[in-house]
Amino acid sequence: MKNTKTPDLPLSIRAIIVAFRVFFHLGWTKISKKLGTDPTTVQKFFQCMQRLANGSEDFWYLLSHIEPSGCHHPAPLIAPGSEESLEVRKAVLKHKTWMRNNAVNYERSKANLPPLKCTTVQNICLDFKHAAANPKYPKRIKRKRQPCKTALDEEDRSNWLQYTQDLEEAEAESDILTNELANKLKDQIQKLKDTVSQQQKNAESPGTLEWELLQQKNMEICAYNDAHFTPA
Rank of each mutant, 00 (worst) to 15 (best):
S85W: 00
L77D: 05
S85A: 15
P80W: 05
V92T: 14
Q50E: 04
C71K: 10
S85I: 00
D58W: 02
D58E: 11
G81F: 07
E67L: 11
V88L: 13
L52V: 07
A91F: 03
E84Y: 03
A79E: 10
E84M: 14
H65K: 15
P76W: 04
H72G: 10
M49F: 02
E87C: 01
L77N: 05
P76S: 13
E83L: 15
W60G: 00
E67D: 11
T40M: 15
S64W: 03
E84V: 11
S69V: 09
G81M: 07
F46M: 12
S69T: 10
A91D: 04
F46S: 06
H65V: 12
G55H: 04
H65E: 07
T40G: 15
Q50D: 01
I66A: 12
H73Q: 11
S56H: 02
L63M: 14
F45P: 07
V88F: 03
P68E: 06
P39F: 03
L86D: 07
Q50M: 05
L86G: 08
P80Q: 07
E67W: 09
C71Y: 11
L62C: 02
L62N: 00
E84I: 08
V42C: 14
G70L: 05
E57R: 03
I78E: 05
V42T: 15
G55Q: 04
V42A: 13
A79T: 10
F59N: 00
G81D: 08
H73F: 09
S56C: 02
H73P: 01
L52N: 04
C48T: 15
V92A: 13
S64D: 08
T41K: 14
P76A: 12
G55D: 04
L77G: 03
L63T: 08
R89S: 07
A53S: 13
E67Q: 12
V92N: 10
K44V: 14
P39D: 03
P68G: 04
K90Q: 14
E67H: 12
H65C: 10
V92S: 12
L86S: 08
H65W: 09
E87P: 00
K44N: 15
F45V: 08
S56I: 01
P76Q: 13
L62A: 01
S56A: 03
A53H: 08
F59A: 03
E83W: 10
E57Q: 01
K44S: 13
S69H: 11
E83G: 14
T40V: 15
A75T: 09
F45L: 14
Q43K: 13
Y61W: 06
G70Y: 09
G55R: 04
L77M: 05
T41I: 14
M49S: 13
S85E: 01
A75C: 05
E84N: 10
R51A: 11
P74E: 02
P68Y: 01
Q43L: 06
K44L: 12
L62I: 10
S85R: 00
A75S: 12
E57T: 06
E87N: 04
A91Y: 03
T40Q: 15
G70M: 07
P80R: 06
E57I: 00
P68N: 02
R89M: 09
